[in-house]
């Protein structure tokens, strides 16, 4: 009896581990393949197409992409856009999130309503009007134009996220500080901000990831190489040099790096972020 029980339990445990392993393999395989092709010499690409690892590896694709293509420029542009967006959004959202967490005010319902409405309609609806408006004030083909648009798109969800971080800090702490002799602003700066830093970092990470990935508005608003972000540049490259797989995938791996770094930064906060911005990807 006990033997069959433990055998059954062992089988269940084994099945569980194998299932987890299967998920890990499926999750990682496409990324592994990206990496594999990016280090495969072009001459082996067709002869060893389906092998798990090439008989010979090379950094030549990376070297080419970094030295002879516009990708460093695209990378820099994407970095500027994503970092500025993330910084501005986090600051703006911290203000509104703090107000929503700590004050009862008449306009609060309207604020929540406004933020929710923006999460409900398809953003593709805005592509045409935003293009016309921005081109009339000269903000197409400009990184500032992209930052402006991305900031607006990410503020609503970031406000809810920051609010949840402020909510998790007891009000007592601020009150204790005010009784200890601090003004509300000092209590905010000396007590609340240090405690919300991890939350702000998480918000920064979420917004950075979102801005780094944005494709459609970048395609619409940017047509010049100078101002191209990574996705625009990569798609342009694909349509122009569609056969240079090694270089494309090397560029792809480069685009992946910042996203993965920020993923590690915000991993702990994924649940909070996804529930705050449930509508967001």
């Amino acid at each position: 009896m006990t033997v069959t029980m433990s055998r059954k339990r062992f089988a269940a445990t084994l099945a569980h581990r194998l299932a987890v392993l299967a998920f890990i393999v499926v999750a990682l395989f496409p990324l592994f393949w990206l990496l594999k092709v990016s280090v495969t010499p072009t001459k082996l690409l067709y002869s060893e197409g389906v092998r798990m690892w090439p008989s010979e590896t090379t950094w030549a694709h990376y070297a080419f992409v970094i030295e002879n293509s516009d990708f460093p420029l695209f990378f820099r542009n994407s970095l500027i856009v994503s970092l500025s967006t993330a910084l501005i959004v986090t600051l703006v959202a911290a203000g509104a999130g703090y107000a929503m967490s700590r004050f009862a005010f008449r306009g609060k319902m309207w604020l929540v309503g406004l933020l929710l409405v923006t999460q409900m309609f398809p953003l593709v609806m805005l592509i045409a009007p935003i293009f016309k408006i921005l081109s009339s004030i000269g903000l197409t083909n400009s990184l500032s134009g992209l930052v402006l648009v991305y900031t607006a798109f990410n503020v609503p969800f970031a406000v809810f996220l920051m609010q949840s971080f402020f909510d998790s800090i007891p009000k007592d702490l601020e009150e204790a500080a005010m009784i200890d002799g601090a003004t509300r602003f000092m209590a905010f700066r000396q007590i609340i901000v240090p405690l919300t830093l991890p939350g702000m970092a998480a918000t920064l990470g979420f917004v950075f990831t979102a801005a780094w990935s944005e494709l459609l508005f970048a395609l619409m608003l940017i047509s010049k190489t100078d101002a191209s972000t990574f996705p625009v540049g990569l798609l342009g490259f694909v349509s122009k040099f569609g056969v240079d797989f090694g270089q494309m995938m090397a560029a792809g791996v480069l685009a992946l790096i910042p996203a993965v770094l920020f993923f590690l930064l915000i991993q702990r906060f994924l649940v909070k972020g996804l529930t705050a911005g449930a509508v967001k990807g």
Binding site: P170, D172, L173, E175, A176, M178, I179, D180, G181, A182, T183
Partner: peptide, 15 residues
């Protein structure tokens, strides 16, 4: 405001 009253307070949550 609280800071000008010069009181000390012990909270239930300790704060």
């Amino acid at each position: 405001p609280p800071k000008e009253r010069n009181l000390a307070m012990v909270f239930q949550s300790y704060a």
